[in-house]
Write a protein that binds this DNA or RNA. Sequence first.
DNA 1: TACGTGACGTAGG
DNA 2: TCCTACGCCACGT
Length: 113
Amino acid sequence: MKTNKENIFDLVYQVVKLIPPGRVTSYGAIAQYIGLKSGARMVGYAMNASHGQTGVPAHRVVNRNGLLTGKHHFASPTEMQERLEREGLVIKEDQIQDFKVHFWDPSLELGID
DNA sequence: TACGTGACGTAGG
DNA sequence: TCCTACGCCACGT
């Protein structure tokens, strides 16, 4: 797998697009799936650049603790939470409740191979 | 061209 | 178990 910067961003977008409604994943999970070493930060950066991208549910990507760390980067600080709640998730204190239950691991769902 | 910053994660104390 | 420090890469100034 090539790790060109454009591919990294594109891969992140594609994986995020594959996240089914009502599910969430973490930066590290995506990074690990696309083969990024410490790409957790890169995934976050890709998300930052995904604002102009359509079909990229960045609100379904949270940190390892299930915390909505990127909510401030949305149009409204509450938009991320609103969207997640709209999909049936429960957000409390900017944190996803039952995060483990709704966690969507690309390496597991899409296959590591 | 060079320095600083950032939507994170892991390791060590 | 909780807190602090470091690493990594790309982008903006």
